[in-house]
Amino acid sequence: MSNDVLVFVEQQDGQIKKASFEALAAGRETAGNLSGAVSAAIVGAGIRNLATQAAQHGATKVFVAESDVLAAHSGDGCARAIAACAEQSGAGTVLFAHTAMGKDLAPRVAQLLDGACTTDATQLSVVDGVLQASKPVFAGKAIKQLRPNAAHYCVTLRPNAFAASEAPAAGEVVNVAAPDGDLLAIVKEISAASVNHVPLQEASVVVSAGRGLKGPEHWTLLEQLVEAFGPGVAAMGASRAVVDAGWRPHSEQVGQTGKVVAPMLYIAVGISGAIQHLAGMVTSKFIVAINKDPQAPIFKVANYGIVGDAFEVLPALTEAIRTTRQ
């Protein structure tokens, strides 16, 4: 297996996504440990200008598969383009961010390359010259360490589990022929959920509430806490109990059957901490729990706990956070 690493870079509104910067940093470190080089792959239409940003984050080469055919995102088209970049670059390892797009593409690219794949890795290491990926399994009740037995290894990285950093490199642009032939499926329409909010899986702070908040009308308390962190910092999450009750949309559900998040700070309010909920947040860096029951299982994983009534603690916390930001 080649020691070179290729990182698939995703963009939104002309900006490389934060999770892709994290993947670039992880790719740089992995390539360093393998004594290989790290490059980036950019795929789509009108995306050439992103090469500079990728270079700023350490890509020695940037493989660009550009075509009007890929103007609307196509999973099959994009996967073929990334596989072409991997083949042209000669990379053995291909890294993706574990985003909606990344987790859809990685298994397809792995299949096209007849390679191995591990999704949702939270740690990478190089042991005896081979990349080893760790990922939570069984809803986070165990960690599996895997190594490839193939010429290619595609790995998706959990957002926020790896730190992004700049490290300017040459970023020499290499053109790759975009795939020809028919596309099997394309994205026809994208609708923004709530433009002002940070995507749940990218937020550095997640504030979640559960049945302890008693009813959907009390979510203003949670919104105020989110706002207190300032724009672009915090996002709102929910337990399944409140999603099933119809108080909150499923897109906010955190847990095994919802989203998996790993922010710097996770605040759980009135959430008991069922194993399926923990599966979605236990790899958060710091966990704060607010619950009136001192026996609630959420306290077992919380770094900091406050035993108390959410209706009393939340407003005080919101006020205190607001003050620290002034």
Partner: peptide
């Protein structure tokens, strides 16, 4: 669902 929204694939 995608980050911050939804998409329709045809």
């Amino acid at each position: 669902d995608i980050e911050g929204g939804r998409e329709t694939i045809e």
